[in-house]
Design a protein around this nucleic acid. Structure first.
Lengths: 189, 189, 189, 189
DNA sequence: GATGAATGAGTATTCATTCAT
DNA sequence: AATGAATGAATACTCATTCAT
């Protein structure tokens, strides 16, 4: 009778270990040995669950993309702009509370195909654009607001994330409100 | 001091070659051989001008930081908010027109110490915060606008940049106006 | 002793599976996993019947050597030269009808000690030399035929085998007669 | 000015070192380290001249195939059967005097595509068959001699080689005459 | 017996860096 | 200064073997 293991659970353990290591040293500097050590297993065992080092990064991407899709899918209540504020807030809180996962975004941005960060942002922009269209229909928007403003709203979130990743003294968790205020009403008196 | 000029010029040639190569393949995948070939010199000659492969990335960083400082130093005319709009616009146009340089930001973000991207963003935030303070003094701002909104404004720019880097179909050059509109007046009716 | 029979039978199954795998991919490229899969058992179970991967090749050798000894032991009727012709023919038919086994000879040749292919050929040469001595005593040989001609006769068989192994379009099964003709009468008019 | 080296010469040195190592340990057991050590250079330097370990074996094959073609191309004087005897003799002398090269044949036989030993033997058989046709035209052959006898003649040589490779006590160099005698006149009185 | 998850020693290959010319 | 051949440390990946279940 074979030794029993929950393959999915073990895979997930290794993946989380990889996320921690990647966050700590970056994907480029991370060695398979590091991941194995972090997971408390032998190097070769990593390969029982992932085909290659790159497959590990791809799995981190999938995991991030799934989380991201989850955030987009979570529909909140209220007016379109309230729901937009909610989406912004939820996203920022998620990123702020998963710093390791967020940190790996730096490597995902650089990694290029076959990992498709472009698709993640596209979906995000489309979700925001959809809410803006609803808001427009509800008469909540001033004239001239369109797709590109959706890009800017997504950008405001990501740009705050960048600054936090590069400088932990930037208080990401507290930037949700300023982002929302700016996106809704700007700074002008 | 003609030798001096030659040396600087040659160094700059190699640096620009490195920027092109890094932009094309990413720093991790870029080989000293690639840089040498792009610069049209022998591999060993790169080491006559740069101490190491990392020094090459550091030099790209310095070059970016210098450009960035230049943008911040360029004082424009007009009211504080006009000058803010100008800063945003100038920054985006600079990035959009230097795609190779911009692309290398992906690697600079990941690279960590001793390269100090944090300082670059800090200065940027301070410049924006300064303009906001001036605008506040001039009564151009609504109440409650502060440091964090400066972070968000810088973030809006960087976040648009991220999306463009990851997906060239995002029209960075055309996002200056939406960014300014959003930052100044938001989307709300 | 039913267990005993089972054990032998299972061992033989695995051995035959190994022969097929070795023939297909060569010993070097053959993995224990492949052999286990071909035998329809788990990888670890192979080790219940064979001490090591090399022991598997050794067992294939033993099996080949036993077959070979069987061919040598089979005494046919007729004059010495008729029996020589018979030996040649039997050998070639055996090899041609066991292509997997034959294919593994390529690896056995390369494998060196402790596998003793030299002994197999030595016995073969001695068998042929013995027949030649009998033929000589019977006055069937022309003068000057000796040990070395025995080597050449064995070589003619093996050399046809080599060509067939390397190029399946060589019709090994149809080479028995030409080999016999050549060895007995040569090509000269 | 670069360090001067004769690339071809250095490549050939490494190739010969590889032949010695492959002959000693077999290709499978031979490490790049062994080849480098035998050549008196650093491991990495091997890769300046050969793309991969397999490329090294391929180069040995090319070298063998070239020698082999050289032997076939060397046309001797005399009647067709005299020339056939010459070809046999030359081939055996070449193999006997290049034991390292010959030993590597064991690995070439096993190596399969893309190395094409089949082509080498095909050319050899064609050369022999050509001589047999000439001999037939000259009335030197008894009836019924054809392509397959060419295969057997080539086989007699290769089969002697096999026995020598597997058992150095087999006196390959002295087998040329017995091979020729057998092929021409057989053993029968 | 049977299993198959885990192990970790073993190696081909890459590439930044050096330095003889 | 310029070159590019040489170096060898670094590392992803493989797979025979073990052993807990």
């Amino acid at each position: 009778m074979p030794r029993r293991v929950d393959r999915e659970a073990r895979r997930e353990e290794i993946l989380q270990a990889a996320v921690r290591v990647f966050a700590r040293k970056g994907f480029t500097a991370a060695r398979i040995d590091d991941v194995a050590a972090e997971a408390g297993i032998a190097k070769g065992s990593v390969y029982l669950y992932f085909d290659s080092r790159d497959a590990l990064l791809a799995a981190v991407f999938d995991s991030y993309a799934a989380h991201s899709a989850g955030v987009l899918a979570a529909r909140s209540q209220g007016s379109p702009l309230e729901r937009l504020a909610d989406l912004v807030s939820t996203t920022i809180q998620f990123l702020a509370s998963h710093p390791d996962h967020a940190r790996v975004l730096l490597d995902l941005w650089s990694s290029g195909p076959p990992l498709d960060m472009a698709a993640v942002y596209r979906e995000y922009r489309e979700a925001v654009a959809g809410l803006l269209r609803e808001a427009h229909a509800a008469g909540e928007l001033r004239p001239g607001i369109g797709e590109r403003h959706a890009t800017v709203i997504v950008g405001a979130i990501e740009g705050c994330l960048v600054q936090w990743l590069v400088d932990p003294s930037v208080p990401l968790a507290e930037l949700a409100d300023p982002v929302i205020e700016l996106c809704l009403d700007g700074v002008r008196a």
